[in-house]
Design a protein around this nucleic acid. Sequence first.
DNA 1: ACTGCCGGGTT
DNA 2: AACCCGGCAGT
Length: 297
Amino acid sequence: GNPSGHADKEVMAATVLTSLSTSPLVLYPSSVPTGNTTTSKTWKEVLSTSYSSSTSGNWSWDASDQSVPSTPSPPLSKDANTGFLHSAQGDDASEDVSESTHFMFEDPIPRKRKVKMIKNLNSFLCRRNSDSDYSDGEEDFYYSEIEVNMDSLTEGLSSLTPTSPTTAGPPPIFPPPLSDVSRSEYVGVNGSQSHTSSLLSQSAPSTLCHIRTDHAYQGPVTHVRTVCIGEKRQPAIGTHAAVNKNHSLVTPATKSAAGTRKPRGEAKKCRKVYGMEKRDMWCTACRWKKACQRFTD
DNA sequence: ACTGCCGGGTT
DNA sequence: AACCCGGCAGT
C-alpha cells in the first residue's frame, strides 16, 4: 500500500465532492465531439441532471446520452489494471495514462488534470466502500467496472490489438458495453451497492462506472468485466460449478468421475501475473492454492 | 523448474 | 467457513 498516496487522493476527491455539492462544477465546459449524432450536453448539464434524478432514487440514463466523451474512461481502466499491476509505484502513473489515452482515443487535448480528478474521485469512492467492508473483517479490494461507448471502444481497440500475446497485464481490460439490462441488474441484485453506483455515475457520467465486489469463487462469467483486483465473499453464482477453458460446465461430479485432472488452463493466473512477492494481490483462491477465480479459462 | 490446483488438514 | 499446504500433474 501507499498511505500517503491514498491521503492525497482522498483530499483531492474530497475537494471535488465538495465542489460538486456546492456549485455545479464544469468539468468539460464545451460540447463533446463524439462523432455521434448531436449529443452536445455539457458535463455540467449531465451532472445536474444526475443529481436531480438521484433524489428520486431512480436512474434512467437515456441511451442517447451514453454517447458521452470517452476521454476519462480509459484512465480508469488503465488505472485499475496496469497501474495496479505495477502496483507499488504509487499514484503518479497518471501522466503516462493520459498520454496513452490521448493516443488511443485520438483526443487532441491532453486533459491531464481533469482526467486525474475523475480518476481520483472514483478511487475515493471505492475507498469509502471498502471502509465499510473492513468492518466486516473482510479482506477486500475492489475494481471499477466501466462501460464504454462502443464507437470509442472499437476505435481504441483497433490501435491496441489486445489479442496480441505481448500485451502485458490482466486480460480483460476492455469490457464490451453492458446492456441496460445488465446494468440495472447490478443495482437491483446488489442492493447495498446501488448508492455507490449512482454516485459514480454522477461523477463520471461518460463511463458509467460500476463498483462491484467480486467473489473469489465466482461462477461462470456471462459478461466481461474489467479486471479486477476486486473480491469479496458473497453468495456466489457458482460455488459448485466452474467453466473450463472450453467453456463447458464442469461440476464436481464431472471432475471426480473422470478421474483425470482437468486440463490446465491457458490463462495466466494470479501467481504468474502478480508474482510471489505480491501474493496479497492474488485472488483468494490462488492464495489458497485453489483454482484461480480471477483469471478463469 | 515452474505452475495450477486437488485433496485434505488446521484453525 | 476460512485458511493453509503437501503433493501431483501439466507445461
